[in-house]
Amino acid sequence: MSIRAVAEKDFRDAIRSRLMIAVAVMFVAFTGGGVALGAASEFGGDSALAVITILMLRGTSVFIPIIALGIAFKSIAGERETGSLKVLLSLPNSRLDVVIGKFIGRTAVVSVAVVVGFLSLLIASAIAFSGELDVMGLVAFMLAALLLGIVFVSIAVSLSAFTRSTFGAAVGAGSVFVLFQFAWAGLVFLLRYAVNGFDWPSGERPDWAEVLTSVNPMEGWRTSANWLVNKLAESGETAQNGADAFYLEPWFGFVVLALWIVLPLVVGYLRFEYSDL
């Protein structure tokens, strides 16, 4: 399997760049800081942890995309720029092997960093809250972070396969971040405005606007992460009692995420396959 050779080489290369260590250190600082905040708060054990979890989920939704985009945006464009892609493709690796191998390699880098970060969170929490630990809650949190990481690695690898330069890939990564974090809701609103005959829309949001809002990967992740944390956390109650539309169901969040993992890879691959080096 050539995919494995590419992924292994990529992972090894990334470790050597100390990229992963830098990311893990940032992540430890981030989770450790969260715990310290919670420990310093007025609340006792359980509620403190609940507050931390909420804060950390918020932080994670910004932090993980930045990390994943940063780790993966150069993955293919960087090799194209230096010329090492010619070495990679002189060997019997197909372009699909390269895209999938890079995706797996960079996902591994992000995953190791996230797992190291969470182990440190676990240890920090154990010290701060003298043993009363919601381990399953933390595991759920970690899984949610990993899921978000994978989505953005896929998007970044796709951008990297799509553009000819790391500069282009960097611009793409920045744009994607802004789009999904801040601009999406505004764009949906603009669309409503346009559909409304360029007039200020009023009343309930129509279903299509709700669906569009829900297909933002960040929205899909919020839905899935909430479900995961509630499901696995001992203290959690299943809050999904009022879901009356499919796009509010937790499974829809997972579908959105799955699409955001698969589609960017397909698009990036197709563009890469049909372009000259």
Binding site: R4, A5, R16, G83, K86, S90, L91, P92
Partner: peptide, 30 residues
């Protein structure tokens, strides 16, 4: 490319990998 050995023009190697690792990668790919 499975049966061909290539020395391309304008290529670059992986600066952080050793000669042994480069060859292992080529051997595994082939």
């Amino acid at each position: 490319r499975d049966r061909t050995g290539v020395l391309p023009e304008g290529y670059d190697l992986y600066d952080r990998l050793t000669a042994r690792e480069h060859l292992r990668f080529a051997i595994e790919s082939k």
